[in-house]
Design a protein around this nucleic acid. Structure first.
Length: 224
DNA sequence: GGGCTGATTTGCT
DNA sequence: GCAAATCAGCCCG
């Protein structure tokens, strides 16, 4: 009960029931074959779920960025196939998880057909389930309240830590069991929102591409 | 709230 | 060697 989300009209959703709903509403693999930037927009409001160590943790995607190797110097695959970026060249609907800055894992959704390297970086989530596990993994266990909860998942490194996503999940199927993306039940959906389209964060090349998308006004967005 | 800086490892040049 | 799709801590005010 302490982990159950309370949304809108104070409907309590036991985690077990929520998990069953999410598992039944996974986005189909065909979804990921659409153009990358369409996917980046459509992922807003969908849930990213992790079932690691038997624990459910999930959040609504509120910020994404597209990366497309053919024309984008900021894309890891821009200069060609390497061992690190190999998953991006593969089939759509997989997770490209990589390590950077000596500390942080990042999760991307692989898009486009096999042979075209492209992906959508998931940059921020609004937590909807498993908040106590997120606090523990983030080292925020003693912190309570909304101000601190914002720190759980308002950045790409933070959300991976909160959901226990690391390199062992690289190339995993996003319609699979460990991590997956799904539509959420009505009581957990974001209220109707506008999408802000702007330039990407933390890069030094391709800085003018307006390939970052976020939910306008959502407080879990990393930067606005 | 904003700016600066160190952390810490991987993989490419 | 060094830059990297970042973050936390510290300073300032």
């Amino acid at each position: 009960m302490t982990n159950s989300p309370i949304i809108g009209s104070a409907v309590l959703t036991p985690d077990q029931t929520l998990l069953e709903y999410l598992q039944a509403n996974k986005l189909p693999t065909e979804f990921y074959g659409q153009p990358t930037l369409d996917i980046a927009r459509q992922l807003l409001g969908k849930a990213l779920i992790s079932l690691v160590d038997g624990r459910l943790a999930a959040g609504l995607i509120v910020e994404t960025e597209g990366y497309i190797a053919t024309i984008d110097p900021a894309c890891h695959a821009y200069t060609g196939l390497t061992r690190r970026n190999a998953v991006m060249w593969g089939v759509p609907g997989r997770a490209y998880v990589y390590f950077t800055y000596g500390n942080h894992w990042m999760i991307n959704v692989v898009t486009e057909e096999e042979g075209l390297a492209a992906a959508v970086l998931i940059r921020a989530l609004e937590p909807i389930a498993g908040l106590e596990d997120m606090r523990r993994r983030r080292g925020l266990h003693r912190l309570k309240g909304k101000a601190e909860d914002r720190q759980l998942t308002n950045g790409p490194g933070k959300l991976c830590q909160a959901l226990a996503i690391d390199g062992t999940l690289n190339n995993s199927d996003l319609a699979g069991d460990s991590i997956f993306i799904a539509a959420v039940p009505p009581n957990l959906q974001l209220p109707p929102f506008e999408v802000v389209e702007t330039t990407r964060i933390g890069i030094t090349r391709g800085v003018d591409f307006p390939w970052r998308y976020y939910v306008k006004g959502n407080r879990f967005v990393s930067k606005w």
